[in-house]
Amino acid sequence: MLFFSFFKTLVDQEVTVELKNDIEIRGTLKTVDQYLNLKLDNVICLNEDKYPHMQSVKNLFIRGSTVRYVHMSSNTVDCTLLQDASRREAMAQSAK
């Protein structure tokens, strides 16, 4: 649940999603689910010259398994809290 929890806090923030097929998309994260499927709004493709078919796409739903990276602004992340949360997750895992 850690990453789901993490991405929840990025809702309505601008993120850049790099897909496994090398398409890079920047847009506002609208929602996320436990599979880390993403829904983006106001989308622009960062390598549009390579993928011109993306020009007309304004919003999209990304299956979580196709995502390679999600880039986000560092000031949207609370690192200390994230450290704690990761520890908590690890503790929960080891307790099982």
């Binding site: 649940m1 850690l2 789901f4 929890s5 993490f6 929840k8 806090t9 689910d33 436990q34 609370d78 809290l81 994230l82 704690d84 949360a85 908590r88 997750e89 929960a92």
Partner: peptide, 25 residues
């Protein structure tokens, strides 16, 4: 059905980051 998969009755442990993040920010 979808919700039943992501809800938890212990949000502070299982959804720690988001819950605390909301409080702090």
């Amino acid at each position: 059905f979808q919700l039943s998969q992501i809800v938890t009755d212990d949000p502070y442990n299982e959804d720690f980051y988001a819950q605390v993040f909301k409080v702090i920010h």
